[in-house]
Write a protein that binds this DNA or RNA. Structure first.
Length: 561
RNA sequence: GUGCUAGUAGCUCAGCUGGAUAGAGCAACGGACUUCUAAUCCGUAGGUCGGGGGUUCGAAUCCCUUCUGGCACACCA
């Protein structure tokens, strides 16, 4: 556990001890210790930490908060054995403000330097076995901006979870079965026959009209010839589907790879269909009395679980619905030993969430273990105008184009910097720009500046400065920077526990901002030896912190720019 | 119509599950390079937290109501 978290726990515990002591001495009336906050005040003038304990209990103690605060402070001072608190003040309506000694700032820096690329890591989520499923785009087309956002959020979240000690599997669910694929197959077949000169081919009603599948079909013919025309249409379609899916998947893998994302598991929906998993799940639901038949279809009684309407499981043509397969799939994930299933879905799927949870309960699995992060749409800005993303109008930016245009670093950062449930305005021009307005460059520039200083000292020489002498930071900006470094662990925990990776992106920006401020008012080289030593430690700690954060975000940390 | 979700500075967003004078960045205006990367920094200005009620020591935050966006309500996925 890191020093800051440790310290906060200790302080809180000591307030509790103080209160207990007050009870013993009959100075306080309360019988139970209530919950209270220990927070970092927004305004530095209010100390390093503040607690609202006096205000919380003032009513039941029948004393005014400030008077009570005085009593509490005396009690706290009696029990406090930490060496870090230098001053306590009572302020405002009854806040108790604590000021820390500067010794702990040095401890933070030391911790960062010692732990290097593990700095900030901890065991908050140790024991969690997380299956994180995201993107899972249909392999019948190209990845678009929405998929890219999911990819960035998912991969970052996975990195955060790992930093918190969880076991994480990144999984891609391949929709290679069901209606869509049947349609896809018919479209491929139509294109195939057309390509061989057949006249009057009827193109399926809901077929895939994209030009890309013609290219795929032509590619198949170039490699494998036209022999397929002589086999049964079933076999032909199956072959074309398999060929096409594998081509599309290779393409998807390639570009996700360029995006810095490597999956652990690619799970095929057809596995669920072919393994008997759906039948098994249906049997379970039937046994528990959740199924009934109507108009030739088999329905799930979701209404009995509080949903608005029942859902079809098996259509009257005998084929299971996507929902039925999805239930079996999620059951399968649990059966693989995960205790937490986290899915990242587009907001247009939100109606599916409650149903899935109810279905998990119905088959006797945990509904709470299934979590869904919903993402709002991405709005694309170019040349100051909104590009409506639409396949129809052709304003449709693929991951491929995005990577080409703005690069991996900017793309990943931009997708992660906002909360998933707010619409993301993606400014292509800004993402491309090499200026301070572009947060990615701003952060990377901080890293490059540190690297530049260290380069001038020389690799072999740096260790000379990293001795055990106590670190003394004289200026406010130095202290603020050290404090920010100390926040890393809390930020990672927050980001992981709340599933909000944007916190990591925001932290990176704050850290870079403080560094740039430091840089413009403090010199490192050509300073007196002890100042140089202190500041060097400070910037090395900053460097590791930046490195760790950028690593989690999947953004590169350039030594030079 | 029903449900979910959002509404905070001109723009894009924070606001740590109820705390102190609501914060950043951009845009605007004014400054700073003989010194480790000016791709940077400093300063100024900018607010009816969509509106209205309620809960309490205290509300952007919780409850009710209302308005305005977005999305979902298939034997599609």
């Amino acid at each position: 556990m890191g020093i800051i978290i440790d310290l906060e726990k200790k302080i809180k515990e000591n307030w509790r001890k103080g209160i207990a002591l007050g009870q013993d001495k009959s100075l306080l009336l309360l019988s139970e210790i209530p919950s209270f906050t220990l927070e970092v005040p927004k305004d530095k003038k209010n100390g390093d930490y503040a607690t609202n304990i006096a205000m919380v209990i003032s009513k039941s103690e029948k004393k005014n908060p400030r008077e009570l605060a005085g009593i509490l402070v005396d009690l706290f001072k009696e029990v406090d054995d930490s060496e870090y608190i230098s001053k306590i003040e009572i302020a405002g309506p009854g806040f108790i403000n604590m000021y820390l000694t500067e010794k702990y700032l040095g401890e933070i820096i030391k911790e960062a330097i010692d732990q290097k690329n593990n700095y900030g890591h901890n065991e908050e989520l140790k024991g969690e076995k997380i299956n994180l499923e995201f993107v899972s785009a249909n392999p019948t087309g190209l990845l678009h901006m929405g998929n890219a956002r999911g990819a960035a959020i998912g991969d970052t979240l996975a990195n955060v979870f790992k930093a918190l000690g969880a076991e994480v599997i990144k999984e891609y669910y391949i929709n290679d079965a069901g209606n869509q694929i049947e349609n896809f197959g018919l479209s491929l077949d139509a294109r195939f026959r057309e390509a061989l000169g057949e006249k009057g081919v009827i193109f399926p009603e809901n077929g895939y009209h994209g030009a890309d599948i013609m290219v795929t079909v032509k590619g198949y013919i170039e490699k494998n010839g036209t022999g397929l025309i002589n086999v049964s249409s079933e076999e032909r379609i199956a072959t074309l589907i398999e060929y096409s899916l594998s081509e599309k998947l290779d393409h998807i893998k390639t570009y996700l790879g360029k995006f810095g994302l490597v999956y652990d598991v690619w799970y095929r929906e057809s596995t669920i269909h072919n393994s008997g998993a759906i039948e098994e799940t249906m049997d379970t639901l039937k046994e528990k009395g959740y199924l009934y038949e109507n108009e030739g279809a088999i329905w799930l009684k979701t209404t009995s679980m509080g949903e608005e309407k029942d859902e079809v499981m098996i259509r009257n043509n005998g084929h299971p619905t996507y929902f039925a397969a999805d239930i079996a799939y999620h059951k399968n994930k649990y059966d693989r030993g995960f205790n937490r299933l986290i899915n990242i879905w587009g907001a247009d799927h939100h109606g599916h969430v409650a149903r899935m949870k109810r279905a998990m309960e119905a088959i006797g699995y945990s509904a709470d273990g299934l979590e869904v992060i919903l993402m709002q749409l991405v709005r694309l800005y170019k040349n100051g105008e909104i590009l409506r993303m639409s396949k129809r109008t052709g304003t449709y930016v693929t991951l491929e184009e995005l990577l080409e245009e703005v690069g991996k670093d900017a793309a990943r950062y931009f997708f992660v910097m906002r909360n998933p449930d707010s619409h993301l305005d993606f400014d292509m021009d800004l993402a491309k720009s090499d200026s301070a307005d572009n947060p990615v460059f701003y952060i990377q520039y901080a890293y490059a500046r540190i690297s530049s200083i260290l380069r001038q000292i020389g690799d072999g020489e740096i260790d000379k400065y990293l001795d055990e002498t106590e670190i003394v930071l004289g200026l406010d900006i130095e202290k603020e920077l050290a404090l920010k470094i100390g926040e890393l662990e809390k930020v990672l925990i927050d980001a992981g526990v709340r599933r909000e990776p944007y916190r990591v992106a925001a932290f990176a920006l704050e850290l870079a901002t403080l560094f740039h401020q430091f840089y413009s008012s403090c010199r490192v080289l050509n300073e007196e030896e002890h100042v140089k030593k202190n500041r060097l430690k400070l910037i090395i700690a900053t460097k590791y912190t930046l490195e760790n954060v950028l690593g989690i975000l999947g953004v590169s940390a350039p030594e030079r720019m």
